[in-house]
Amino acid sequence: MVTFRIALAGNPNTGKSTLFNTLTGLRQHTGNWAGKTVIRAEGSYEYQNQTYKVIDLPGTYSLFTNSVDEEVARDYIILEKPDVTVVVLDATSLERNLNLALQVLEMTSKTILCINLMDEALKLGIEIDEKKLSEKLGVPVVKISARKKEGIQSLKSSIYDVVSGNIVPKPRQILYREEIENRIRAIESEIRNLLGDSYPSRWMALRILEGDQSILDAMERFESSGVGRELNTYGNSSCHT
């Protein structure tokens, strides 16, 4: 039986932990992330004769590593490469929550947006057109109420479709001004030469342009191959041109 890894990402207070509990029930355990004091929660469920291991990432508002929680979440998505990252959004604060979703979409195409708390949104008269949102962003969008266990089967079905290749998400790319795009393309070429398709080259190029040393250090620890040092050398030269 195949086991797929599903990461749950989201802002605090989006009901992400409730969804984790709904999906995994009693089949879960907790510990700490390696070298961190941050709690790591894992569980599993079965669907269509396949096992899905669910990893509940720390709740964060961003993935720019301003905190240990953000670093843990970012490193798991980039370095561990889960089969699907489900971004849990609060239906009552969708615009604010989409900031994190857009960051994840730059990191991995294997993403599903899960709009939770639809029961609360309906009370407030909020309507969300998930099909139009899916068309705009290029990834599956599912509406649920984890607390009431509504929409869970639709979410499981979407996860199954992505891991099985029935759906191939194609996130819409965020474009920057021409000067930045030219520099991104130049750095992307170097990253592909060094890493192939192992990592999202565009996202890596953006982090290098921003001088994000933490991701290079994380790659060095993870790969133990000098890759981080090589990227750091190129990044330093790029940031001064």
Rank of each mutant, 00 (worst) to 15 (best):
E130F: 02
E127C: 00
A205Y: 01
R177K: 08
G235R: 00
G165A: 11
R183S: 03
E95C: 02
N193M: 05
N166S: 07
W203S: 00
D69I: 00
N97E: 04
S157V: 05
T241R: 14
T111F: 11
T22H: 09
L117T: 03
S158V: 01
S62H: 08
T65D: 13
N97L: 11
M219A: 02
Y234T: 08
D56Y: 08
S67H: 07
S145M: 09
I55Y: 12
E106V: 00
L137N: 06
T65R: 11
G235V: 11
I144A: 06
L231H: 06
Q28D: 06
L19A: 00
T22P: 07
D212P: 03
V54A: 05
T18K: 08
G196Y: 06
G125S: 12
V38S: 03
E70T: 02
P82Q: 12
R40P: 01
D69P: 03
R147W: 13
E120V: 09
L98P: 07
G226K: 10
E80Y: 08
E179C: 09
L19R: 04
R192M: 14
L8T: 02
G43N: 10
I167A: 05
L122Q: 15
S214N: 08
R229W: 09
L26V: 14
L194R: 13
N232L: 15
S134K: 07
E95T: 13
M118D: 08
Q213N: 14
Y52A: 05
T22E: 15
G43V: 07
V168P: 01
D119C: 08
G211L: 05
I152T: 09
I191N: 11
A41G: 09
V141Q: 09
T111G: 02
Y61N: 07
N32G: 03
I39L: 12
Q48H: 14
T92I: 12
V2T: 13
S224C: 07
E220N: 05
T65G: 02
E230L: 08
N232Q: 09
E42Q: 14
T3P: 02
H29K: 14
V104R: 00
L8H: 01
V72F: 01
S154F: 04
R96A: 15
L133K: 03
E95G: 00
I152H: 07
N66M: 09
V163S: 02
Y234R: 15
K36N: 04
K136W: 12
I78M: 11
A7G: 06
L231T: 03
V168Y: 03
G35Q: 03
I174D: 13
M204Y: 09
M219H: 04
A41W: 06
